[in-house]
Design a protein around this nucleic acid. Structure first.
Lengths: 247, 247
DNA sequence: CGGACCCTCCCATCCATTGAGAGGGTGTTT
DNA sequence: AAACACCCTCTCAATGGATGGGAGGGTCCG
């Protein structure tokens, strides 16, 4: 029964296979891959075999499959991430050294916030964000900053959707989100205490490129107490430095 | 004239297309991609179009093509890189803060050295290594460490090949390389002054996992002068810390 | 305004891809 | 030790998605 249920290119299937790996489950069996990608086992086995051959996937000591080293290598050539990261890294380090806990760099991708880089102290407060991890924009300080300075359509789309709640402090009404965005634009930074986790405060500022466009958000996560606001000047200064490095 | 010159899967071609992007030239035109991947223009155009649709490639403001954000996202889920990087990052930061210049983490991949992470000061001495960049093992201090503690077959393969020369100091004879490897094993670290660039000294130490296996090299690049050796204790201490974090 | 590049779409041809099933693993339960 | 429940890879005939020369239409430059 050949070629029957298809209607899609083999490339599309390969990409679906690559997408079945997540941050939480970076290792899967072939069967699991087949299930997630919605492919017959034999087909999944064959494509996985090819991807392993080309290095995009790799095999662990058993038969489990994971994303391959070659994939990481190819992806690290991605220009958008690289130039921003290179410009930001020294400032992110300084920020981390001074403020402690977590210092992060995030960008907008689709309608979500993606963290490009994160520096964490070993004894830092909890933090749910992960490098390459995604969060809805209304949850985190980075997201609110990126929304506030982002395209109007994005704001409308996010405001139109139900706002997921993570703690008692999370913004869950469009009105409150709108008010927060206004406040961020007035103040030039976002400070959200206990929105992601009750013990943590996120503080974020916009990073502007040479043209004045907001291209990223720089943020720190600190304990949820009165001293949190003192991190704002360091953030603003670091964001300016990154902007200058971006030419 | 369809399907004639093929004999290979479309997936193989897609991977060849992804591989035509390099660190030095992260943006290519479709014609350039076709040339590098050895594909007819029409075919390259079609596959590039698909890869863009799936997000593995992206388009710049003009028509130029680059590696896509989604590719970076998928690759960041690669387990081998992630756990080592996460364990090493805090120590790499401390090392960088204390020693200055460049602090790097490298692993062996194939018969080459690949840099997983690098922290650089803005005013640091020159450094040719790049994140996701490759170097032949005999050139750099990281490479020599990874060779010294690596599998015997690797040493034989590298010793059998011609040893490329970068500066007057570069190791170019098998005898000298063998002697250097012995010295590294005796001392527990590698110090190569002026091998990559005459003004820079590389110092590297092995990073061991919980089983005592050498899984990476930790290194710093400092100015080529008498103070260089003083970085060794800090490197050794950091490598032990990383090893402990790897459980 | 000619020349040298770019890029995408078209479409008749046909071979690489397909997936059920066989065959053979490994690990756990009865 | 047998039964079970998973795993995974290979085979093979049928076929529809991939193929690539060329047409058509861009942009840039001197």
């Amino acid at each position: 029964m050949p070629r029957t249920a298809t209607g899609e290119s083999s490339l599309a299937r390969a990409v679906r296979i690559l997408e079945s790996f997540t941050l939480d489950e970076p290792e899967l069996t072939v069967s699991e891959v087949a299930r997630r990608a919605g492919l017959p086992l034999a087909t999944a086995s064959r494509i996985v075999g090819q991807l392993v051959e080309y290095g995009l996937l790799g095999r662990g000591p058993g038969r489990e499959v994971r994303v391959g080293f070659r994939m990481w290598e190819l992806a690290s050539r991605a220009a958008p991430t690289r130039s921003l990261r290179n410009a930001a890294m020294p400032y992110l380090e300084d920020l981390h050294a001074v403020v402690g806990h977590h210092a992060q760099l995030a960008v907008l991708q689709g309608d979500e916030v993606v963290f490009l880089e994160r520096l964490s102290a070993r004894d830092a407060v909890v933090n749910y964000s992960e490098i390459a991890g995604r969060l809805p924009p209304h949850i985190s300080s980075s997201g609110v900053v990126l929304m506030a300075y982002g395209p109007a359509e994005l704001q409308e789309r996010v405001l139109a959707r139900p706002l997921e709640s993570w703690t008692a402090e999370t913004i869950t009404t469009p009105d409150r989100l709108r008010a927060t965005l206004d406040q961020v634009r007035r103040r030039g930074y976002a400070l959200l205490a206990g929105h992601v986790h009750r013990d943590a405060t996120g503080i974020a500022v916009p990073v502007r490129n040479g043209l004045g466009e907001v291209v990223a958000a720089l943020s720190v996560i600190v304990p949820n107490d009165a001293r949190a606001v003192s991190a704002v000047p360091a953030l603003l200064a670091a964001a300016r430095g990154i902007g200058r490095s971006l030419r």
